[in-house]
């Protein structure tokens, strides 16, 4: 156990150093330069956001949202404020979804998970939902 601990410490030192070095490289000379990776992750987020928006256009998704009493505009607002990481996470879920179940199942699942957890006050992702407690 002790040997694993000491080994982990070495690894974390190396990792910390590596991360520091890559950060230094990525931001050349002046902190205000925009790195290539930065622009790329923004672009990826835009694409993810756009694809999420087109999913909202589907009639089945609209129906389910309507039956939940959630307006489309509110969901659109939420999608606009999702961070790149959250969007990427969602795209990941879509990509690994079993085929056949389709997009509707996943987007509704995604929304339901957060809406229900919001209702139970476990999370605060959709501020327009009044929680039960």
């Amino acid at each position: 156990m002790q040997s694993i601990r000491s080994y982990l410490r070495q690894v974390s030192i190396v990792m910390a150093f590596a991360m520091m070095m890559t950060t230094l490289w990525a931001v050349p000379a002046s902190a205000a330069m925009v790195g290539t990776g930065e622009v790329l992750s923004e672009q990826r987020a835009d694409i993810d956001r756009a694809s999420l928006m087109t999913m909202l256009e589907k009639q089945e998704v609209k129906d389910v949202l309507a039956s939940m009493g959630v307006s489309e505009a509110e969901v659109e607002n939420r999608i606009q404020s999702l961070t790149p990481a959250e969007l990427a996470d969602f795209e990941q879920q879509l990509a690994t979804a079993p085929t056949g179940e389709g997009v509707v199942g996943v987007i509704v699942l995604f929304l339901v998970i957060f809406i229900v957890t919001d209702l139970l006050c476990a999370t605060n992702i959709y501020p327009f939902i009044n929680c039960i407690r």
């Binding site: 490289w25 990525a26 790195g35 290539t36 990776g37 790329l40 990826r44």
Partner: peptide, 8 residues
């Protein structure tokens, strides 16, 4: 992204 990994 792969190219920017080379850069960084």
């Amino acid at each position: 992204t792969a190219a920017s990994d080379l850069e960084s």
